[in-house]
Amino acid sequence: MFGLKQNSLYSNLNQIRKFVQIFSLIFLIAVPVLILYEIWFIIGNLYSITIGGLDIVDPASALQTILLSKEVTTTVLFGLIVPIVLALVFGKVFCSWMCPYNTLTEWLTAVSAKLFKKRARKAKLQLVDRNPNPILYWSILAAILILSWMLEFPLVLFLSAPGIISSEISHVILGMGMGLELLIVLVIISFEALIFKRYWCKYVCPVGAVLSLFRVRKTLRVAYDKAVCNCAGESEPCSYICPLQLSPKQPYLYPYCFNCGLCIKICEKSGSGALSFKFDEKKITAEISNSKKNCCE
């Protein structure tokens, strides 16, 4: 696959992911710069973007507009196709591969983990509720939507960090002045930097939450093969490295996981290869039958 060595596949995949992250940041800067040079091929930001006639609308913002105005335009309807198909096939890869907020926090955590080694390790060691019941996730999303519907206020737009960052990039480059929405992003970033945990992406962000609604049995997932896993109990490199503090070995990995593949990469490095990306559900049923056998024997 990709002409890469099998054993370094996932670390190569991570290299590609980091490249795409930088590329999407440059892309967000390039859109307004091209407009300054009177090239209107790509217009918009991460709330909604038009690439040469192809409309793409962020599902969370679309859902909010539909809720508030009780009307659907054809552009919104067709604009949902690309993000929904992407989510149905690969999961929330928008978050892990493209979202500028995730890219920034990933860099920031890498820096702060080096600066405050002890605190970072301490924060990472807490094992309580790695994969909480998804009811928590869904109720936060429902609360945001209901609140914005009751107040008739576009709350989702103000809570969408990727949207705010991308629109402010365009505002600044096109000379429209920087908006105070950026403060919202700064507050979230500093909050997360203080507690060393990515609670925003994990629980609150409406963009990711709406994207994770589109999940079927065959959607890309991190599969765990218990039989091959040789990490005993407490030392779990996969859950240690997870940016969202999830454990790929436990249930309820989804809807939280955004398929960044870091756990698979570290698992591959450790040599066991118990984790891998899979498109089908087969492994899980096999696991369940195995565990049933184990319990019954």
Binding site: I43, Y47, Q64, E71, P154
Partner: peptide
């Protein structure tokens, strides 16, 4: 209705 996509300004 407005989702602040900035397209009109751009």
């Amino acid at each position: 209705k407005c989702i602040k996509c900035n397209k009109c300004a751009q």
